[in-house]
Design a protein around this nucleic acid. Structure first.
Length: 702
DNA sequence: CACCCAAACTTTTTT
DNA sequence: AGTTTGGGTG
């Protein structure tokens, strides 16, 4: 297992471009008023794929700063931390360059300080404003897995595990809860709409969620949804909302097409008339509805205000050749809703994207490897090529073959480093020491001790609570089990970390030292797992404090890469494999899209729902628009679907993807692989062979 | 009460 | 094919 720092896309070239007309208009929208900075009404920038959105946004931020808005009065929200860093960096560079032009001294204050994801900004705001709403600022942030675990425990406590019919899976429970919160919808509606098979459990779910909320408050923790929800409610309190509002002159939001009702609500509560609000996005790239993102947010944005928001489209694409854009445009034309921002490019290009028909996944892999190696021969590095897919496991056949050919690769999306049980264990120790009220972590750790199961763990946690959550008090807990040696060492560790008796830089190491024996006892291949845990300690060193480490790690979990044979970080060049979702915002010279067949594009679970179907179309669009020069859509005839409740799964003789209509096919060049088309030579040779056979057959009777 | 084993279940994408 | 759940055993 390896962590990677995501490679920065190669965008140096574009920055040299001056802004085009549309970009300039978007970047400078509003009036400059002396002493007051830039005054602007609500603005929506529809930024198609590859239209220089980040650059425009950075220029807008720079424009605000250069015209007198203090950088710490600009709130900039992005979809991921990586995007935030890139944007901050570019803005700084633009401001610095302009100041130099003007001959002014570079001012250190050019740094945007309020920049990050909605969740991380919420985290920061809540911790600073916590006192004013009676919230303890030392709350712990739970990730999705934690939420699932807590729901699981509560569900047992409430007796829902012993019912005749099976209660929904814990993961499903989190999904339902999360949907209700993020979409600000009714439980009954959500069940009916998205989880019909759970509709019978409405009453139970309601009390489960109530218990969940109480439990979170008791343990002093917030989940992802709470971060937004608390912020939303905070923004609904006039006094506090005013205070927050007065600290910002401008709010800029990136990837607005992937915000949900709650996030939109936060914005309108902070800036009700839309003045100072800029949102940027592309409805044709809205692909996060499973996370309750709501395309209606961007489609309906202008009408939220009167007069309506200014809409500026960016339609000049700097990324792809025209034939690739033709395909994307054709696809979007068939969508039922949206701004349908048609893109154009200066890069003519002759080659249409290929639609490659292959027999099965094996020959799909074979084709891709052949093409990738050929391209590398011609000087296109592996890093400038990417293979994209709808779901994480679709790359498994390819991965096997890449390893066989010794082609290094890095996979984005899918499993997370923090999902590994042993990493969770180590982190839980630190979290429990950090926040002893956090029963969930304590519970997890205690169960690791030999002879301690759920019941004893509960007893210990109750004991701790009675003793005002003082870790040292655990020495007084008497039981035959706690005489074992890991126990006193654990208590000392918890107390030392909790009271910072050892410096933060040493704490994770101390945790690992204690955990090492447990790890060995509990899991096989503990050497590999121990490596992960040590890596965690290395990561921890990069953070200035325990609090920052714990919350930022939860808000921005590092990726786990597929193990790619050898240490591929030593190889400078490696191929990128990525889910389409994780490919957002990126670009590569050559792109290969796996399994473009019905049942996958669109996904079979989306086929009886119009809204979902539209999203699948946009998903394909995102994949297509990642390509700069070469694009290969792969179409296996035989396609394996891992179907539920059925033994193994099944092979399906793939129907052509319903998105590949006639109109689309004219934008594609269809080829079979292996190439079974006959050349004239083949035919001539065939005739020769036939004549030969005829002769032999006749010869039998001579 | 902890641990083990067999049956049941299962979409996919992620802050 | 792999994880989670729930029941049985020691």
């Amino acid at each position: 297992m390896q962590l990677l720092s995501t490679p920065k896309p190669d965008r140096q070239v574009r920055e040299k471009h001056a802004l085009n007309e549309q970009q300039h208009q978007a970047a400078t929208y509003g009036q400059v008023e002396a002493g007051k900075g830039v005054q602007s009404g609500p603005l929506l920038i529809i930024a198609g794929a590859g239209t220089g959105k980040t650059n425009t946004l950075a220029h807008r931020a720079a424009h605000l700063i250069l015209n007198g808005t203090s950088p710490d009065r600009v709130l900039l929200m992005t979809f991921s931390r990586r995007a935030a860093q890139e944007l901050a960096e570019r803005t700084r560079r633009i401001v610095a360059a302009k100041l130099k032009e003007r001959g002014e001294e570079e001012c250190a204050a050019a740094d945007l300080s309020w920049i990050g994801t909605f969740h991380s900004v919420a985290n920061r705001l809540l911790r600073s404003q916590a006192k004013s709403i009676g919230l303890d600022p030392d709350f712990t942030i739970m990730d999705r897995g934690d939420a699932a675990d807590m729901l699981d425990l509560l569900r047992h406590k409430l007796g829902y595990s012993r019912t005749e019919k099976r209660f929904p899976h814990k993961g499903t429970c989190v999904d339902i809860y999360s949907r209700v919160v993020n979409a600000q919808a009714d439980l009954a509606d959500v069940l009916q709409q998205d989880f019909p098979w759970c509709a019978d459990w409405e009453t139970e779910l309601k009390s489960l969620f109530r218990a969940y909320v109480e439990e979170k408050q008791k343990q002093l923790c917030l989940d992802y949804d709470d971060l937004l929800l608390y912020w939303f409610h905070l923004a609904g309190e006039p006094a506090i909302a005013n205070r927050i509002r007065e600290t910002f002159d401008h709010i800029l939001v990136d990837e607005y097409q992937d915000t949900n009702v709650l996030q939109a609500g936060i914005l309108t509560r902070l800036f009700p008339d839309g003045r100072g609000l800029t949102v940027v996005g592309d409805d044709a790239q809205s692909i996060y509805s499973f996370r309750s993102a709501n395309v209606e947010n961007i489609l309906g944005f202008p009408q939220l205000f009167s007069p309506p928001a200014q809409v500026i489209p960016l339609s000049k694409n700097y990324r792809s050749t025209q034939p690739i854009l033709d395909l994307s445009n054709a696809l979007l034309k068939e969508a039922s809703t949206g701004y349908k921002n048609q893109l154009f490019s200066d890069k003519a290009g002759k080659q249409k994207p290929w639609l490659v028909t292959v027999e099965d996944q094996e020959s799909q892999s074979k084709y891709i490897i052949e093409k990738i190696l050929a391209a590398r021969e011609e000087g296109v590095t592996l890093k400038r090529q990417a293979v994209l897919f709808r779901s994480s496991h679709h790359s498994s056949d390819l991965e096997i073959n890449l390893r066989r050919h010794n082609i290094p690769y890095v996979k984005h999306g899918g499993l997370k480093f923090l999902d590994a049980a042993h990493v969770k264990d180590a982190l839980s120790i630190l979290r429990w020491a950090d926040n002893p009220r956090h029963r969930l972590s304590g519970f997890r750790i205690l169960k690791l001790l030999p002879g301690v199961g759920p019941a004893i763990a509960e007893k210990i946690l109750d004991f701790l609570e009675l003793n005002h959550f003082d870790p040292a008090s655990l020495t007084n807990f008497k039981s035959r089990i706690t005489a074992e040696k890991p126990w006193p060492a654990l208590i000392k560790l918890l107390a030392d970390v909790h009271h910072n008796r050892i410096p933060w830089q040493e704490q994770m190491k101390a945790v690992n030292f204690w955990y090492r024996d447990i790890l060995e006892e509990h899991y096989d291949n503990h050497l590999v797992r121990n490596g992960d845990v040590e890596q965690l300690a290395m990561i921890a060193l990069q953070y200035p404090s325990r609090e920052r480490f714990l919350s930022e790690l939860t808000l921005d979990p590092p990726n786990k890469t597929g193990d790619h044979g050898n240490d591929s970080r030593k190889d400078d060049d490696y191929l990128i494999l990525s889910t389409v979702h994780s490919a957002k915002g990126q670009e590569w010279r050559n792109v290969y899209i796996l399994n473009v067949v019905d049942g996958n594009f669109p996904n079979e679970y989306a086929t009886n729902n119009d809204a979902a179907l539209e999203e699948e179309r946009r998903l394909l669009n995102v994949a297509i628009t990642r390509a700069q020069r070469e694009l290969h859509l792969m179409q296996p005839l035989r396609f394996w679907i891992p179907e539920q409740q059925r033994y193994g799964g099944k092979h399906v003789y793939g129907a052509k993807s319903r998105f590949l209509t006639k109109a689309l096919c004219t934008a594609l060049e269809e080829i079979p692989y292996p190439d079974t088309r006959l050349t004239e030579q083949d035919i001539a040779k065939g005739e020769e062979v036939l004549a030969d056979i005829k002769g032999k057959v006749l010869g039998m009777w001579e």
